[in-house]
Structures are given as structure tokens and as C-alpha cells.
Amino acid sequence: MACFLVPMGEAIVATAVQKVVENREKKVGEERIKKTGLSWSRRLSWLNKLLWGGTILLALEHLWHGEVVPWPPFLTAMENPANVSPMLHEMAIFGGAMAITITVVWGIMILVAELKAKAAMPKVRENPASGGA
């Protein structure tokens, strides 16, 4: 019915956080980023791409199935008050599970990337002439 609205909410918040973090990183400079590997703005950009990609394509699917319309109230479930409660229930169960799964997958992505970056660090230190970029 409208499950994609939950990941969309998370995407809006994550995008705002990414912008704030980007500005903060610009002020701090790249020194800290170089020490730790990946910057937080880059990590958050992965989460945002996953969330926005899913949201946009799920919105298309809902439009295809007639659950979303381009005129108010936009959600067909909102036209009938009896459908509002099942819609909210579906948003909580399906949308919540989607948002949590995407966040968990993103967490695993970061963990793997961090481990790879840490494993690559000593090699770069041992042989600085080879660069490391």
C-alpha cells in the first residue's frame, strides 16, 4: 500500500545527515579521513543510494499497481478511512523490515570495506613507494 514511505523517511534523514557530515569533513580536512580509510560522508552516500534506489523503484511499482496516484491524497488507501489502519500496519511491518534490512546490509558493506582498508594499510606503510591509492 505505502510501505516504501518508511525507507523514504529514512532516506530523507540520512541525506540530511550526509550533508552535515560532508560540511564537517570539509572543515576538519582530509587528514583524519586518510588515517581511518573511508570517510563517513562516503559511507552514508552508499546508504542513501540503496535507500533512494529502492524508494524510487518501489514507488514506480506502487504506481503500476494503482496504489499510488499522481493526485491528492496520492495513496488510494487514504480515500477510504477503513483502509488507513491496514495501510499503517503494512507500513510498520513491511516498510520497517525493508528499512532495517537495508541498514543491516549497509552495515555489513561498511564492515567489509573497513576490514579490507585495514588489511591494506600495513602493506602501504611497509612499501610507501608503491603509493596506496
Binding site: W52, I56, A97, V105
Partner: peptide
């Protein structure tokens, strides 16, 4: 990278949707 993450985001969400349904 953007294109693949767009597709993966939707794939994960639909997978969750299909499993719960």
C-alpha cells in the same frame, strides 16, 4: 556504482516484501 546500488536497494526491498508476504 550508483546504478548497481539503485538496483540492489530495490532488490533487497522487494525480497523483504516477497518473504513477509
Amino acid at each position: 556504482g550508483l546504478l548497481s546500488l539503485l538496483f540492489w536497494g530495490a532488490t533487497i526491498m522487494w525480497l523483504v516484501d516477497h518473504v513477509i508476504a
